[in-house]
Design a binder for these strands. Structure first.
Lengths: 143, 143
DNA sequence: ATTAAATCGGATATTATAATCTGATTTAAT
DNA sequence: ATTAAATCAGATTATAATATCCGATTTAAT
């Protein structure tokens, strides 16, 4: 077993990328998102609800309700979604599981791994949802 | 929640690094390893047993029994331990959880993430246990 | 032989994540 | 008003990872 992001977070990222790719202001019901992404409706529904609470997603209740991004896709970074769902544990926790891993009391691989981790963090911080629109549509077509 | 390696794997890496740092051919009982690393004895015991089955660790049964590395620390790569415990899922699975993520049908972040992943894999493949002996001893002293 | 201390195998318990279910509430259209 | 279709809140279930427990076996020393 090995995980980068929890399933919640994976699905959350998928859904946000999908909403960004649609490039519309209209809300999309969770059922349609689930169908397009081939993921469980109830589950993605819960995830979108929590992202709504975080302010990344806008939701409209009632008939003709659904979800949309709360802001322009070029204003939402990948790290925003990760932070909202999984938190920043990935970038703070020692990769070897040692307690108090820090520059003062580093674990054996602190430096080497830290470098990679920083790059991953930078990538997630630099990239916004709009950058992936085409690739997302192409991927979803092949699901 | 976010994990790179499972706890099994973290502890397995810790234990192997510790055994390498001791720089001895004598076997060390799991109880002592657990005590030094401040991790559950029963758990690390099981993990070392499975690494014994994998051939990375040598075990001696009975009184005065215990565990040691099965080969010279400079012959054991970090990736060997990861592979034995967690497998290579981390380097094969789509980071966004999309199915069939490949150069043919890449996920939206396939290229950007793939680069980082390759570097992580290289690091784990290049580094052997002996390289971390001093750092390991220093870290364990502060546990 | 007996004892002590260890690995080992298998079962069990605990905890966290993933997924589902149920019912309440909201809202648009008839 | 009524109906239909959606979000939402909370409870429940299923599954996997983590951790512990127990007893059998092995081995060294007395």
């Amino acid at each position: 077993m090995t995980i980068i992001f929890s399933k919640k977070c994976e699905y959350g990222l998928q859904a946000c990328l999908y909403l960004a790719a649609l490039n519309t202001m209209e809300v999309i019901p969770s059922g349609e998102i689930a169908k397009k992404l081939k993921i469980p409706k109830e589950f993605i529904s819960k995830i979108l609800q929590s992202l709504t609470a975080s302010g990344l997603i806008y939701s409209k209740k009632g008939k003709l309700g659904g979800f949309s991004l709360a802001k322009n896709p070029n204003k939402i970074k990948l790290i925003d979604i990760v932070t909202a769902i999984d938190g920043l544990e990935l970038f703070e926790r020692c990769v070897l599981g040692f307690p108090n891993c820090s520059p003062d009391t580093p674990c054996p691989v602190h430096d080497k791994w830290g470098e990679l981790r920083t790059k991953a963090y930078q990538m997630l911080t630099e990239e916004t949802l709009d950058a992936f629109a085409e690739k997302t549509l192409r991927k979803i077509k092949n699901l």
